[in-house]
Design a protein around this nucleic acid. Structure first.
Lengths: 170, 170
DNA sequence: AGATACGTTCAGTCCAGACTGAACGATGCC
DNA sequence: GGCATCGTTCAGTCTGGACTGAACGTATCT
């Protein structure tokens, strides 16, 4: 960053990085992760933890955890620089792949845990349904139907996330 | 809720409501909003603020704000009960419409503000680019290209959110 | 008018989780 | 081995924003 062409250019990059932080913040991911990715995205060459840390003025611990997270999402990749034992990272510039890994996998995880809960409730409701006396049967049936409907919708969302067609739309 | 068929059924509903709260919590929306919707979703008849408040054991202020939010997303709708001046609400059972309004509109809003920032940076970068001396021109060009690439991707996402095909997939 | 019942607003509280600092392993160099 | 350089881990801190309680505005009664 320090060897960039002009102060104006540096300022523009800083604003872009700040935007990245703000964006991830608005999605509840914290701002560091967006800043790190934006920085690496604009950097013409791979950067190591200390460079990132200094540029963003955040703790090394944050950078370490954040970079790990980004790596799991295939948003950044590890790069070895010969004769240097530090870890260097560079950004994945293909946003399509990034979204596929990060957004979709995160979504799937959250939806999955929600699904497990719903199914658990649904099965224990089947037991409860048997004990209901005939007078109140109809009311209980409504609840059962709603639960079933919720589960079916969840399956549709899951199918959408797995649908290869989604990739083509990006 | 209190007039439900059996204790087991009530317990199942409570667990479903808890799941709803946990789900919205995991998306950074707070748990009350998920609980309110889940409660209304299972309720066989519309409910007023006090009933919701008592059932979930949260403050009336929370319920009021939350219901407003859900209404903006078309997740619940206002219902008038004759001879009762309280506000009653019932859940929208069509999840498709719900997702369309809530998720997509929220996403669009966030992406939009991100886009505004990027474009602002991009334009001020055009000015900076002009002042760069020839020696460093190439490096600055890389930054400009990356920014352009980011903006183009944003446009694709926007197009996807507006794509009517998305509705058919749900 | 006063009294009651509702819904909303707003300043303040509280908490999950992002972030930090220091201690800790691990690895390479002398 | 001893030293230096990195990266990671973890207990603790701090902050954004969800949630609350009380005051307020409004409408509907008698």
């Amino acid at each position: 960053m320090k060897d960039l062409a002009s102060p104006e250019l540096t300022a523009a990059c800083r604003r872009f990085i700040e935007s990245g932080g703000h964006t991830t913040q608005s999605f509840g991911l914290g701002q560091v992760i967006g800043q790190v990715f934006a920085l690496l995205y604009l950097s013409p060459r791979p950067m190591c933890l200390d460079e990132i840390m200094e540029e963003l003025a955040v703790s090394k611990a944050s950078v370490s955890m954040t970079v790990r997270q980004l790596e799991q999402w295939s948003a950044v990749k590890h790069v070895w620089v010969k004769g240097d034992r530090r870890d260097f990272y560079e950004a994945e510039t293909d946003f399509k792949a990034l979204v596929r890994h990060a957004v979709v996998s995160t979504l799937r995880k959250k939806i999955e845990t929600a699904a497990v809960r719903i199914e658990s409730v649904e099965s224990s409701l089947q037991d409860a349904l048997a004990k209901v006396d005939n007078g109140k049967r109809k009311e209980a049936k409504v609840v059962a139907d709603r639960l079933k409907h919720a589960r079916q919708f969840h399956q549709k969302v899951n199918a959408l996330l797995n649908n290869p067609l989604l990739d083509h739309l990006l």
